Measured scan of single mutants.
Amino acid sequence: TTYKLILNGKTLKGETTTEAVDAETAERVFKEYAKKNGVDGEWTYDDATKTFTVTE
Rank of each mutant, 00 (worst) to 15 (best):
T1Q: 14
T1K: 15
T1S: 10
T2F: 13
T2I: 09
T2Q: 13
T2P: 09
Y3H: 03
Y3P: 00
Y3F: 09
Y3E: 00
Y3W: 04
Y3K: 00
Y3G: 00
K4E: 02
K4S: 05
K4D: 01
K4Q: 07
K4I: 07
K4Y: 09
K4L: 14
L5C: 04
L5Q: 00
L5R: 00
I6V: 08
I6H: 06
I6R: 11
I6P: 00
I6D: 03
I6W: 05
L7F: 08
L7C: 04
L7M: 07
N8H: 09
N8I: 13
N8A: 08
N8C: 04
N8Q: 13
N8R: 07
G9E: 03
G9D: 03
G9Y: 11
G9R: 04
G9K: 03
G9Q: 06
G9A: 10
K10Q: 06
K10P: 11
K10T: 15
K10R: 14
T11K: 15
T11Q: 11
T11Y: 15
T11E: 14
T11W: 13
T11L: 14
T11V: 13
T11C: 05
L12T: 13
L12E: 11
L12A: 05
L12Q: 11
L12I: 13
L12Y: 09
L12N: 11
K13N: 09
K13M: 15
K13W: 10
K13G: 08
K13P: 11
K13R: 12
K13Y: 08
G14A: 11
G14P: 10
G14T: 08
G14C: 05
G14I: 14
G14D: 14
G14Q: 15
G14K: 12
E15K: 05
E15G: 04
E15V: 06
E15W: 12
E15C: 03
E15Y: 06
E15Q: 10
E15M: 05
T16A: 07
T16F: 08
T17W: 15
T17M: 08
T17R: 12
T17V: 14
T17C: 04
T17N: 06
T17S: 09
T18S: 09
T18F: 06
T18M: 07
T18D: 03
T18E: 07
E19P: 07
E19L: 06
E19Y: 09
E19W: 14
E19S: 13
A20D: 03
A20K: 03
A20R: 03
A20C: 04
A20I: 03
A20P: 02
A20L: 03
V21L: 07
V21S: 07
V21M: 12
V21Y: 09
V21W: 09
V21Q: 09
V21N: 14
V21C: 04
D22M: 04
D22H: 08
D22W: 03
D22Q: 04
D22K: 05
A23T: 03
A23W: 10
A23M: 05
A23I: 05
A23Q: 15
A23G: 13
A23H: 15
A23P: 09
A23L: 08
E24R: 10
E24K: 07
E24H: 07
E24Q: 09
E24L: 07
E24V: 09
T25F: 09
T25Q: 12
T25C: 04
T25D: 14
T25G: 07
T25M: 12
T25A: 15
T25W: 12
T25K: 13
T25Y: 07
T25I: 11
A26Q: 00
A26L: 01
A26I: 02
A26V: 03
A26Y: 00
E27M: 15
E27T: 06
E27L: 10
E27G: 10
E27N: 07
E27W: 14
E27Y: 08
R28L: 15
R28A: 15
R28S: 07
R28G: 09
R28F: 15
R28T: 12
R28M: 13
R28H: 12
V29R: 10
V29C: 04
V29Q: 10
V29L: 15
V29D: 07
V29F: 12
V29E: 08
V29Y: 10
F30K: 00
F30M: 03
F30Q: 00
F30D: 00
K31E: 05
K31M: 09
K31S: 06
K31R: 11
E32M: 13
E32I: 06
E32L: 15
E32Y: 07
E32Q: 08
E32R: 06
E32V: 12
E32A: 13
E32N: 12
E32H: 06
E32T: 08
Y33V: 05
Y33I: 07
Y33N: 02
Y33M: 06
Y33G: 02
A34V: 15
A34L: 07
A34M: 05
A34S: 15
A34T: 11
A34D: 00
A34W: 03
K35N: 14
K35S: 08
K35G: 10
K35R: 07
K35Y: 08
K35Q: 11
K35V: 13
K35C: 04
K35P: 02
K36E: 15
K36A: 04
K36W: 11
K36P: 01
K36Y: 12
K36S: 11
K36V: 12
N37R: 09
N37D: 05
N37M: 06
N37L: 13
N37A: 12
N37H: 15
N37I: 05
N37V: 08
N37S: 08
N37C: 04
N37G: 05
G38T: 05
G38L: 14
G38V: 05
G38Y: 05
G38Q: 13
V39S: 04
V39D: 01
V39P: 02
V39H: 05
D40S: 12
D40I: 10
D40M: 07
D40G: 12
G41K: 01
G41A: 02
G41Q: 02
G41P: 01
G41E: 01
G41H: 02
G41W: 10
E42K: 10
E42H: 09
E42Q: 12
E42F: 12
E42C: 04
E42I: 06
W43Y: 03
W43P: 01
W43Q: 01
W43N: 00
W43I: 03
W43L: 03
W43T: 02
W43K: 00
W43C: 02
T44G: 15
T44K: 08
T44Q: 12
T44A: 09
T44Y: 11
T44N: 07
T44F: 13
Y45G: 00
Y45I: 01
Y45N: 01
Y45R: 02
D46I: 06
D46K: 07
D46Q: 13
D46W: 04
D47G: 09
D47C: 04
D47A: 11
D47V: 12
D47Y: 10
D47R: 11
D47Q: 08
A48C: 05
A48Y: 13
A48W: 09
A48S: 13
A48F: 12
A48G: 13
A48M: 10
T49A: 12
T49I: 04
T49M: 13
T49G: 04
T49R: 15
K50G: 07
K50T: 05
K50F: 13
K50C: 03
K50Y: 08
K50R: 11
T51G: 02
T51L: 06
T51V: 12
T51N: 02
T51S: 12
T51H: 03
T51P: 00
T51M: 09
F52K: 00
F52D: 00
F52I: 01
F52V: 01
F52G: 00
T53A: 06
T53L: 08
T53G: 03
T53D: 03
T53I: 13
T53R: 09
T53M: 11
T53F: 06
T53Y: 06
T53E: 07
T53W: 08
V54E: 01
V54Y: 02
V54R: 00
V54N: 02
V54L: 15
V54G: 01
T55Q: 10
T55W: 13
T55I: 11
T55H: 11
E56S: 04
E56H: 06
E56T: 04
E56L: 03
E56W: 13
E56M: 04
